[in-house]
């Protein structure tokens, strides 16, 4: 019984979103169609894959504001290299470049000790500017069939990008829970001081986490530009906030120390599902803005409110039993 209540408590946000989805499922006919579901899964993977990397970053107590600019920069570079070489190596190059840009952010945060918010804010300006400079502000397109397949193709009827997200989520989960560097990432987020004293390499973990964020963005950039057949330096403005929203909705705390890759991915799917349903409901796009914001507020306030209620309960239970748990 206690296990169940614990589970419910840890997944409040996701369960609330699930409830909303079920409600929409029952009430809208068009929402129930298979095609619509598949397109939601596809949309979700563009956010979810970057979310996987961002989860690492947020677990360390950091944050990456540069994702939106980075995805534009990487997508543009990807298209330019593809046009020049026609080779799949372009995709590999972009993945490497994404990891490198992420690591650059990580070095600024870990070694140069610039707060993550500011370091990635600077990167937000720089990457977007570079994307404009490289292309001169013009869109670039590329439409070789193999490349288009990446973002549009299906395996056994399921979008490839969604399957890729699942595989990456699984790998990232192992990386986070089962490897030394992953455990260090969590330790740094919990208490940098404690993990330093225990002889862990904090800086390396932080740089690694930002590198993962960059890598996630790089994979998304390939998928998105393949989906659109083109890329332009203006694209994906505000993307970083969507990614951060998915991660936070998944229950990863912004102050760091805990989080789950699978919850991020699930939250991305639910988030896209709900905005998709609102469109199908023919809700005015301006009103969708407001409803989205309200859902965010509701989701974010659930945990604090439960915390407040718990505190009250603990107080009521009087002080001789020391309340453990809780951060």
């Amino acid at each position: 019984m206690k296990k169940i209540t614990n589970y419910l408590r840890e997944h409040t946000i996701l369960l609330t979103l699930l409830l909303m989805l079920l409600l929409l499922f029952v009430t809208t006919g068009r929402f129930r169609s298979l095609d619509n579901f598949l397109s939601i899964l596809q949309e979700a993977s563009f956010i979810g894959i970057a979310g996987i990397g961002m989860t690492f970053c947020i677990i360390t107590g950091g944050l990456d504001l540069s994702s939106g600019s980075m995805i534009a920069l990487l997508a543009v570079i990807n298209m330019l290299i593809l046009n020049a070489t026609n080779s799949f190596l372009a995709v590999l190059a972009v993945l490497l470049l994404g990891a490198a840009l992420g690591a650059f952010n990580g070095v600024l945060v870990a070694k140069v000790r610039i707060p993550a918010f500011i370091a990635t804010l600077a990167a937000f300006y720089v990457f977007r500017a570079l994307a404009y400079i490289i292309t001169g502000g013009n869109p670039v397109s590329y439409s070789a069939p193999w490349f288009i397949w990446l973002g549009n193709g299906k395996v056994l009827g399921i979008p490839f990008s969604f399957l890729l997200m699942l595989v990456l989520a699984f790998l990232a989960h192992l990386l986070l829970r089962r490897t030394r560097i992953g455990r260090t990432v969590i330790a740094v987020g919990n208490s940098p001081e404690a993990s330093r004293i225990s002889g862990l390499n904090n800086d390396r973990a932080v740089i690694f986490a930002f590198m993962m964020a960059g890598l996630g963005v790089a994979v998304s950039s390939v998928l998105v530009s393949s989906r659109l057949w083109s890329a332009n330096p203006r694209m994906m403005d505000g993307y970083e906030f969507k990614v951060i929203t998915a991660v936070v909705l998944g229950g990863t705390a912004l102050e760091g120390g805990r989080g789950s890759i699978f919850n991020t991915v699930t939250a991305a799917v639910f988030y896209c599902g709900i905005s998709n349903a609102m469109t199908l409901y023919r809700i005015d796009s301006y009103v969708i803005n407001i409803i989205t914001g309200m859902i965010l507020l509701l989701a974010f306030s659930l945990n604090p409110i439960m915390q407040i209620m718990e505190e009250r309960k603990n107080k009521a239970e009087a002080g001789n039993v020391k309340a453990g748990g809780g951060r």
Partner: peptide, 11 residues
């Protein structure tokens, strides 16, 4: 609601 300023003002 005790929401962090970052997420609260984002919403």
């Amino acid at each position: 609601l005790r929401i962090q300023t970052f997420v609260a003002t984002l919403a």
